[in-house]
Design a protein around this nucleic acid. Sequence first.
DNA 1: CTGTTAGCGCGTTCAG
DNA 2: CTGAACGCGCTAACAG
Lengths: 339, 339
Amino acid sequence: MKKTIYDIAKHAGVSIATVSRVINNTGRMSDETRKRILRIMEEFDYLPNMHASALTGKKTNSIGVIVPDVSNPFFGEIVKFIQLFAEEQGYTVIIGSTDYHPEKEANYFSLLKQKSVDGLIMATSVDSDESLERLQEIVDDNVPLAMLTHDRMPFPMDVVTIDDSMGGYIATNHLLELGHKDIVFVTGSQTMTSFRDRIKGARQSLEHNGVEFHESQIIKSHFSIEGAKEDIGQYLETHLPTAIFAVNDVFACATIQAARKRGVKVPEDLSVVGFDNTVLAEVTDPPLTTISQPKADMGKQIVRMLVEAIEGKKTSKSKIILSPELIIRQSTVKPEAQV
Amino acid sequence: MKKTIYDIAKHAGVSIATVSRVINNTGRMSDETRKRILRIMEEFDYLPNMHASALTGKKTNSIGVIVPDVSNPFFGEIVKFIQLFAEEQGYTVIIGSTDYHPEKEANYFSLLKQKSVDGLIMATSVDSDESLERLQEIVDDNVPLAMLTHDRMPFPMDVVTIDDSMGGYIATNHLLELGHKDIVFVTGSQTMTSFRDRIKGARQSLEHNGVEFHESQIIKSHFSIEGAKEDIGQYLETHLPTAIFAVNDVFACATIQAARKRGVKVPEDLSVVGFDNTVLAEVTDPPLTTISQPKADMGKQIVRMLVEAIEGKKTSKSKIILSPELIIRQSTVKPEAQV
DNA sequence: CTGTTAGCGCGTTCAG
DNA sequence: CTGAACGCGCTAACAG
């Protein structure tokens, strides 16, 4: 019961070439036959076989997206937007979640190459030799690349990020303006350039405002909420600042919980700022003051650039840096208001 | 610089048929040549062209997964697990997020059919005529189907759900045991069979414990957190129960926030139970007592069943009902403890 | 055990 | 404007 282009041609009383032309909108033909063929295709629920056309070297109309973890709300939302815009452009999306495993990342590159995607969006920090090697192969195939969130460019590619440094800057500025002097920073893996930049921006803010900074003001933690709670809790035992800036909402949540566990109230005793403006920021108590990334816009821009590159409308690479935004909720108050 | 099976054959000094055999592990041949060919494939980074093999009617080693919303933490986690197990079995996953649009759902069915996936997992309530029609087509192609979370079976297929009814039952029992009598229920779209069942279980618990139930104890709300907050808040103005059971964590979060906005403290003034045990339950304040769905297990089971069906190791359809579990955190206390 | 050959469904010439 | 014929990379008979 499979419909092929031959079936359509036969029922329309034309040759497959003619049908092919209406499918691809190429060549010229009488408007009448075109319409008739379209009607027949409709009637037969005919869909061209992707594999056959991909085999002859045409586009697959699919793009690959690699993120560290789909179950992380931030990436979940990003993926959703990418998918949304990609579909608007007629592309389907193949998602890969690496769980922060370079090995899995490398596997995805192979896989996506095998599936011959037309383009690739990466939101992971492609680091390992293995990954780089695999990526090289797909670069050799002239598959357009686009990088999201990260700013490393082992190969020429389009990039969309936010100004992480500025994000860190305005977050810290906000605390400074409220009157906080004793601020501590929570960050994760230093291989994440975005985290580093956020901290960098924070330090710049401190500097510009004439506030001193010591390495001891930084808490380095891990990815899991549990681990972070532990790490932050221990730190708080030794020193209790009036404010904490965490490089993402997950850490900020962990901070709130670690603090509360020790009888430290947020925001009364401790102000907290997060980063990403995920759902988490909305549901915690108190709702989190955080730095918002324009996820929808990021998704839109990166898809736009990638599709343009795929369709050859754009040959040079570019980099778009979007602005983060401070979202003030209730986790930050003036220190005077603190007990 | 594309490697084809011909290149490998040439360099190995054999015919393509032989290479094809080692790729597919069919036929017999000298161990030596097999190894030699494998070595050459390795050396050349040769990957068989999927489209070519799919074209000849072989499996594509891919399965489609359709969920309502990837950015919802519950589905994000489910998808993650499905992907994990599917990859272990050698299948790649194509994810579709419908945003609760039947239209998008229908589109995904077409798309997945076109991509000739080997099987399909659905976590949406396939309702619309359009969807059903498209689904019919893929059923006609003998593509195995599996349904997750939902229990509607328009066609024969494997099913994995939790016992939603039991979930509602134990959640309500928990509240009853704590001594609550005045319990209100928050639910969403009634087309979601899972929500209905949870409420059904709750009513059974009430009944078994000789507590009366009135329709007025149910708050029907919408999907967005914002909308839910509004709806619940309004209800609370008219009547303040001692406990609320929400059919998912999102509603539970909304409940907590709506309550707090009106000066009602959780759990002191109001106990709250959620459902799903998503990250949200961990980060809210107070951490949410909720009903946990064994997401990893659900993902594992459904992938297992689907793969068995795909590989023909299983012809009959089955239904697996997993048990929900009560996770007691801090959003529920005895009413006596309440002010 | 291995090589040969005919498709798979479609895009693309190239003559009509 | 149309139709026949070839090739894409691979699998599956069928020969050897």
